[in-house]
């Protein structure tokens, strides 16, 4: 399949408009059932009580926070190797969404942590990894912003995203290593060690909803970015003519 044809804004818009109703519908459906399942139809935890319901928001966000970074890294690789303009756009458009997922994972973690651990923030290995991931997102978005020239910014951001992606496993490993050295009191975690099967369905549904949300917002953002570039080009040609 020749992916280059979707670099054309008109073609891409057509494709996006075909997908959007479906992703929107899926999002509404999954969030609707997911919220019902997680808030009413699932049991409370025998240890954590009702607070365990925070997991249905926390875990999908934490997973997607990393997933979106992987998406950005893959898009960056595509952009560097095949120079596909749509890859740059998707990576750029995905970053703020991923950053929001990361913030939500941290915030829900903190809200859950207060009654469970007795503190808003505990230097738990996973939370710490997610926090560093947020810094990586900040760096990635900052480099897009710092460079005036779009093509140059795209390449620089792609290089950074790939370096970051290679480093993420190393960072995660080092943070876990660090955490076992300074083992804190808490063994209780927001996700695990074993999840009751009744908790799996709401979790999956919420996850599906969040993926649909990501696809929807991503497509919107790419469309908006394309429109912005079109405006910019028109201004250039107006200035030149």
């Amino acid at each position: 399949m020749d992916m280059h044809k979707y670099a054309n804004p008109a073609r891409f818009n057509k494709l996006a408009d075909a997908i959007l109703p479906w992703s929107l519908g899926l999002m509404a459906l999954a969030f609707g059932t997911g919220l019902y399942l997680s808030l009413f139809a699932s049991p409370a935890d025998y240890q954590q009580g009702e607070m365990v319901r925070m997991m249905y928001i926390h875990v999908p966000n934490a997973v997607l926070a990393q997933g979106v970074y992987v998406f950005i890294a893959l898009a960056s690789a595509v952009s560097l190797i095949w120079k596909h303009p749509l890859a740059d756009l998707s990576a750029k458009a995905a970053a703020p969404i991923g950053a929001v997922f990361t913030v939500l994972a941290l915030v829900t973690g903190a809200i859950w942590g207060k009654p469970t651990w007795g503190a808003w923030w505990v230097w738990d290995a996973r939370l710490t990894s997610v926090l560093i991931l947020l810094f990586l997102y900040f760096g990635y978005m900052a480099i897009w912003q710092a460079m005036e020239n779009e093509t140059r910014a795209a390449k620089a951001a792609a290089i950074l995203a790939l370096v970051g992606a290679i480093n993420i496993p190393i960072i995660k490993f080092s943070v876990e290593w660090w955490n076992t050295l300074h083992q804190g009191a808490s063994i209780l975690r927001l996700d695990g060690p074993a999840i009751h099967p009744d908790m799996l369905w709401p979790l999956f549904t919420m996850m599906a909803g969040l993926v649909a949300y990501f696809v929807t917002v991503l497509l919107w953002r790419i469309k908006a970015e394309m429109a912005a570039r079109k405006v910019q080009n028109l201004r250039y040609s107006r200035a030149a003519g």
């Binding site: 560093i132 900052a142 480099i143 950074l160 970051g164 190393i170 960072i171 943070v175 290593w177 660090w178």
Partner: peptide
């Protein structure tokens, strides 16, 4: 910007 880009990558070395 350099600090923002690099410091997170320094974490494993530090640890």
């Amino acid at each position: 910007l350099l600090s923002l880009l690099i410091l997170p990558l320094y974490v494993p070395t530090l640890i």
